[in-house]
Amino acid sequence: MKVVLQRVSKASVKIDDQVKGAINKGYLLLVGVADGDEQADIDYLVRKIHNLRIFEDESGRMNRSIEDVSGAILSISQFTLFADTKKGNRPSFTKAGVPELATAMYDQFNATLRKSGLQVETGEFGADMQVSLTNDGPVTILFDTKSAH
């Protein structure tokens, strides 16, 4: 699995001009699933995201977690994180998980985040979404479970 995490002061997602999810302070997560991903990948990511300390403390240092600041998460499925651009000008997405697996893993990822005590808003898997955000910092962190072990 791959996740692009952006620290935001606000973020929202629209589908067919209707707001599907919106948060204030927290994280916008772009979530990609590959074939072969499993629960261990989800558990790793949830632990890292839940405990990540990238919000500023009283001294201005990145030392507070999303829970410390009562932040929320907007989670968006993003198969294009697995784009292969080595050949030609048109990316290949063959490394992205098949939709059945990817949908189940994305749903389980969000459920596990919620179970950890975090507020999670989502987009809709496979939908044409318009995502808006105000990146705070900017702070952007990349997670790839295949390079974590």
Rank of each mutant, 00 (worst) to 15 (best):
A96R: 09
G97S: 11
P99Y: 07
E100V: 05
E100F: 13
L101G: 09
L101A: 13
L101P: 02
A102L: 03
A102D: 08
A104M: 03
A104P: 01
A104F: 07
M105P: 05
Y106F: 08
D107E: 15
Q108W: 03
Q108F: 05
F109K: 11
N110Q: 06
N110D: 02
N110K: 07
N110T: 02
N110C: 07
A111D: 06
A111E: 14
A111W: 13
T112M: 14
L113N: 09
L113E: 13
L113P: 09
R114V: 07
R114P: 04
K115V: 03
K115A: 11
K115W: 11
S116W: 14
Q119A: 03
Q119H: 09
V120H: 10
V120G: 03
E121L: 00
T122I: 05
G123E: 03
E124D: 07
F125I: 00
G126Q: 11
A127N: 03
D128N: 03
M129A: 10
S132M: 10
S132A: 11
S132G: 13
L133T: 04
L133M: 15
T134D: 11
N135R: 06
N135I: 02
N135F: 09
D136N: 10
D136P: 01
G137W: 04
G137Y: 04
P138K: 13
P138C: 09
P138L: 14
V139D: 09
V139K: 13
V139C: 15
T140F: 02
T140I: 13
I141D: 13
L142Q: 09
L142P: 13
L142G: 08
L142K: 10
L142H: 02
F143C: 15
